[in-house]
Design a protein around this nucleic acid. Structure first.
Length: 293
DNA sequence: CACTTGACCTGTCCGC
DNA sequence: TGCGGACAGGTCAAGT
């Protein structure tokens, strides 16, 4: 579930908490979550100091003084949680929403020289973290294919419409979820932005009027910005770098609102359908279905 | 190439 | 109460 606003919220937190910390030890035991060898970890992670934390699409990039980076994808249930020294040892506080760490979902534990720790937790093991030379990051397949950042100036209305052409015969929802069209949209913000723009998620891209695609562009930018302000959406698992939840979900208009009245007070009820293989929330009264001619 | 579906996993919830 | 099955949804591989 972490999408752009959630990953950005984690990035902001980690940037504040991790920069200048030096890695002392690393514990990991699930190769799919962290595939690097012990030799690589010894050579490029132990003793490294954290320089900065970046984000591209839904991927976190933790740059190290060794010219390597930790590249992290949270997928659905991944969490990156930092705990200061005070959370460990006798009489430690336990005010967190996710309890003591490590726990049974912990895949990687990084301990810093000041006894603070960073945990990579991932219940479903879909997420991953790997150590790569910083200079090689732009060469990995995902980075070569991924579309523009929606909150950067390069993401203009014209660029959006042009990039949608690569998926013109599919549903608008499938196109929004395609990371090569634009970066960072997932199920929550696809449903929210399509509702705001008044477009039914099953609409075929080529049939949607340009004017509506322009409205959708604005809706995407607005919704992502608002969610970052609210610290992202906690639907089930998501927490920020301090283990705390985001509050955007309480501002959501249709996501997880099935069987509730439409927020536009149109008299309709939000329905839940399946589009592009995902649970999809829609007001069929307010969202127009554009079908193939 | 464009598009859709299944696999990867585990925890939760629902119906019997 | 236990138990099987559906569901949650990001990305990639495989299939049409």
């Amino acid at each position: 579930m972490p999408e752009l606003p959630e990953v950005e919220t984690v990035r902001i937190g980690l940037q504040k908490l991790l920069v200048h910390k030096t890695v002392q030890t690393v514990d990991f035991d699930w190769p799919k979550s962290f595939p690097n060898s012990k030799q690589q970890v010894d050579a490029f992670l132990l003793g490294a100091t954290i320089i900065q934390v970046r984000r591209r699409a839904k991927v976190l990039l933790i740059d190290l003084s060794t010219n390597y980076s930790l590249v992290v994808h949270l997928k659905m249930t991944g969490q990156m949680v930092f705990r200061g020294e005070q959370y460990f040892g006798a009489g430690h506080p336990n005010d967190s929403l996710i309890g003591d760490l490590p726990d049974k979902s912990t895949r990687v534990t990084i301990t810093f020289t000041d006894a603070s720790k960073l945990f990579f937790n991932d219940q479903r093991k879909f997420g991953w973290m790997r150590l790569l030379p910083t200079a090689e990051i732009p060469n990995i397949d995902f980075m070569k294919k991924v579309g523009p950042e929606p909150l950067e100036p390069e993401f203009t209305k014209e660029v959006f419409v042009e990039r949608l052409q690569r998926r013109k015969n599919t549903s608008i929802k499938a196109a929004l979820l395609d990371q090569t069209v634009l970066a960072g949209i997932g199920n929550i913000y696809a449903d929210e932005s399509l509702f705001i723009a008044g477009i039914h998620p099953k609409s075929i891209v080529s049939a949607v009027p340009k004017k509506s695609l322009f409205l959708l562009h604005t809706a995407i930018v607005d919704v992502l910005k608002l969610s970052i302000e609210k610290g992202g959406s906690t639907d089930r698992n998501y927490v920020n770098a301090e283990g705390k939840k985001g509050s955007y979900i309480s501002f959501a208009k249709v996501f997880r609102k099935e069987n509730q009245p439409c927020p536009n007070a149109c008299g309709g009820i939000i329905e839940k359908l399946r589009v592009a293989g995902r649970g999809t929330h829609v007001c069929v009264h307010c969202q127009k279905l554009y079908e193939k001619e």
